[in-house]
Design a protein around this nucleic acid. Structure first.
Lengths: 260, 260
DNA sequence: AAACGCGTCTCATGATGCGGGACACAAGAT
DNA sequence: ATCTTGTGTCCCGCATCATGAGACGCGTTT
């Protein structure tokens, strides 16, 4: 994938993972040649890796079309990690925030050069569970950059800052300044920088080590999130973030009819 | 993992996946040497694989303890596959069944030699999201065996049928007969075969190809699920299963405040 | 019919992953 | 204090393993 650090010792593994990573952007079902194209591997290699992944349940192959999709092991380990993070407990809180603000609410984590929305409540193509958003042009991303853990705060590692709209911050210096502002004010704003007529406000969510692990965002139009009401939205978002922090900290506790 | 088919061409990948698989049974955080022990790999290899997985976000390493846990890519792809399967839409239905029957409800998928609970609403150690249950000693497992897809119906591949209680079916012939009965009646029963004083009833959930993809179970004590009421529970479970089938088939449709 | 695209498999080659071993560090045990 | 045991980390030569060209059969398109 990235031509970076890890020099040797793991080529096959990296390639296998990049096969899995295809499903992030590609549709839910990909053919063997799709995989070969997307990963830029030879068909033999892609095919062999896919078979290996199938044999361990990380992919599964449709009997009729012989196309691949993410397999039960992926769902299993994903659910496991979702629960180990305690994320199943936060959904009700997010719904409450969505209703209180009449906005779309997303919870995201950083994964490499992207903010990944783990729980999201919208159908619009820029929000919703599973989506990967750029770090420099979204409120979620700015929050995750502003309090990035040591080793991940390098803006140069983001590569060229692609413009999504004419308001997108494309100059690294401007981005640095913006991120400094986010750190000062405690929240990030995206005012039409990733798509026209959409305004997003995001705040950090801390883990037990007091490090920013997730970002919480409310999205709506500038008519709803007006300049005058930004403070109000920030307050609500932060209150929700604090509630999430408590939920994520607290030990396991479920009832029989809980299905978050 | 299994010493089966795939002869060559994928050793590194299989090993990397078996590193990930450690987290199924092990705790949420494992040290490098834990991984080496569980995978039966040399410490060098386990370490190198773990590093590779970290570099791609499939694992993450705690800065303080240098132990590993499942990483954001795992959560991301897991959530993606969870949504691609449409599973986020079924939780309310499961909750309703749980309330209607005053029982614990679990939805499971087959993964190799296990039934994996993808959504479960209980704290008891035999139920709940993420758990792996044997196929031969659970109602969920019997359902998944009874309508196994071609290539997975071989009971011999299950290995020795380990006894959980004195009622567990350990003879392959008995299991074959039991499975035949499940096919005939349309539901499976587990009456203290995996743990004393627990009775479970499971029914199949079909996908769009009319194949059994999931199993749905209600669990309680024999005092609740009495012999006389088994039919009633089966009916309710099947009704819920049908509702799930419709939900899983229907195209994407969410509202802003949905947080399944 | 011919030309494509696709999924699948084989096989010789050498690049790649392997693990013994070394080192540093920490926490008990003697 | 010194030894012991368990860690996490990294190097580096050897040979095992992954690699990709190519072949084959099968549909669909031209």
């Amino acid at each position: 994938m990235e031509k970076n650090g890890s020099p040797v010792g793991t080529q096959a593994v990296q390639r296998a993972m990049s096969v899995l990573a295809c499903f992030r952007d590609g549709g839910p079902m990909l053919s063997a040649s799709d995989l070969a194209r997307r990963t830029e591997l030879s068909t033999s290699t892609a095919h062999r890796l896919a078979r290996a992944l199938v044999s361990m349940g990380f992919l599964e192959q449709d009997a009729r079309t012989s196309r691949y999709r993410l397999g039960p092991s992926m769902t299993e380990l994903g659910q496991l990690s979702f629960h180990q993070r305690g994320l199943h407990r936060v959904a009700p809180e997010l719904g409450q925030l969505a209703r209180a603000t009449s906005a779309t609410v997303d919870l995201a984590i950083r994964n490499g050069r992207y903010a990944v929305i783990l729980i999201g409540g919208s159908v619009d193509p820029e929000s919703g569970t599973g989506l990967r958003r750029p770090l420099h042009s979204t409120a979620l991303g700015k929050v995750l950059l502003a309090w990035a853990p040591p080793g991940e705060e390098d803006l140069a590692a983001l590569g060229p800052l692609r413009a999504q709209t004419e308001r997108t911050i494309v100059d690294p210096c401007d981005l640095r300044a913006e991120i400094e502002r986010v750190r000062k004010t405690g929240y990030a704003l995206n005012d039409g920088e990733s798509s026209h007529g959409i305004r997003t406000l995001a705040v950090p969510v801390l883990d037990r080590a007091e490090q920013v692990r997730y970002a919480l965002a409310v999205r709506s139009t500038p008519e709803v999130i007006t300049d005058a009401r930004i403070g109000w939205f920030a307050m609500h978002a932060r209150a929700c973030a604090r509630a999430l922090e408590v939920l994520l900290l607290s030990p396991e506790e479920r009832r029989v009819t809980d299905f978050g």
